[in-house]
Amino acid sequence: MEVLVQKDCLGGERKIEVRLPRAVELPDLDRVEGCEQRTVLHSLPRPFFRLDVPGSFSLSGIIGEPRVRFTVRLAVRERAVELALAACERMMEPDP
C-alpha cells in the first residue's frame, strides 16, 4: 500500500491518502470497525462513499477506485498512519 501523509490546513487533523492494492468494493466497507455512519452516494457520476468512526477518523473514496482518504482526528493524530493502515488491511481482507 502506498501512503501519503498531508497536514490539515486547520492545524489539527491529519490527512492520510492510501492507494490500496485493488479498487474498493462495497463489501469492503462492512469491514471497517467502529463505523457509526456510512454514506454511499450512487447517484453521483462516481459513487462516492464516506464512513465515520467517531473519535478516530473518517474515510472517503470512490467505489471502484483504489485511492482512499482518511481524516484522522486531532486526539489520535500521532497514530494516524497506524490507524489508517490497520483499517485498510481489514478492508482488503478476503471474505471468509
Partner: peptide, 23 residues
C-alpha cells in the same frame, strides 16, 4: 459539509479542483 470533504468530493467525483480550509 466539512469544506475538506467537499473539496475531496468535487475533486474525485467531478474532477473540479477547489481549495478548502483557512487559505
Amino acid at each position: 459539509m466539512a469544506p475538506d470533504v467537499a473539496e475531496d468530493l468535487l475533486d474525485r467525483v467531478f474532477d473540479v479542483v477547489t481549495r478548502s480550509g483557512l487559505h
